[in-house]
Design a protein around this nucleic acid. Structure first.
Lengths: 159, 159
DNA sequence: TATTGTTATACTCTATAACTATA
DNA sequence: TATAGTTATAGAGTATAACAATA
């Protein structure tokens, strides 16, 4: 049985480097949240959060009906109408009617939309690679050895 | 000199476990962003993003003037007036006038505000600890060994 | 009738501009 | 005059309700 600390653990006290799940959980929550926040700050696009999120979903999940996009984004249909309208106006997505069922509209990213997403990702990667370059080899090795564990936490298949 | 891959690297191909900074950067960007998104989904409070963010800043940076809070949150002063008004109405923060300079108002979290933040953090920690419990010991060890590296990436002091 | 998406309308959030109280 | 904060007002963003087109 694992012990439960009776006093709060300082998540920055890496001298301990505990393998107690509660210690790891509290530390990882702080570290991962902060890293994601800094990464997000590197990815400014001029698009609103819902616009960039929709664009990302459209790229990932391929030609999507507006209803399917609403489900993915967990927003109401009228919001999708507006967001897609704006993205289309900006030339980032293309909307095409379905020939078989003329009620349905499908959207895909345009080359410009894909380029914008690639540019944002590259900017974040450059920031990260720069910071990684300032670490020592041991630190990079330890980080590389833990990446598949981060994926396992969110249920991502290894390899 | 490190080689630059001429083809995109699949960030999920952990069989490679490259220590090339570009590979680590691309993989970490995806993994950390996804983990933070899942964590965020575990932390619903009924408060809006700006409300929870302001409450967190007020807790962390102690008695804050409204102007200082606006700087921390990078929002305009009128937004702070509204957000703090709502948090005060909910009993999560307390606002006190400065005796020396009566133009100034300072805010602190109430016990209820602190309890709400603690509850959100605990919910995230429980989710993380549960997932950590389903990993094997080797995975937990590798993750624990990388936590200080995540901190170093965002410029956090070790220990 | 049921489904897909749009239009009408209202509410929340945040911004700029104008204002009040205090220094 | 300058500063801290509030009030007035406007522009996004998203929701529900009502509607149009199609199946």
């Amino acid at each position: 049985m694992e012990t439960v600390p009776t006093t709060p653990v300082n998540p920055f006290d890496t001298a301990v480097r505990s393998t107690d799940v509660a210690d790891i959980a509290a530390h990882l929550r702080v570290s991962a949240t902060r890293l994601a926040r800094v990464l997000r700050s590197q990815g400014d696009t001029g698009l609103s959060p819902s616009q960039i999120s929709a664009l990302t979903s459209i790229e990932r999940h391929g030609p999507l009906t507006l209803g399917a996009l609403a489900d993915h984004e967990r927003v109401a249909p009228p919001s999708v109408t507006k967001v897609v309208g704006k993205l289309e106006e900006l030339g980032l997505v293309q909307r095409r009617g379905d020939l078989a069922d003329r009620r349905v509209a499908r959207v895909t990213v345009t080359p410009a939309g894909a380029a914008l997403l690639a540019e944002v990702r590259q900017r974040k990667d450059v920031w990260l690679a720069t910071r990684l370059g300032s670490l020592d080899e041991d630190q990079r090795t330890r980080l590389a050895a833990a990446l598949d564990v981060l994926d396992a936490l969110t249920g991502q298949d290894p390899a």
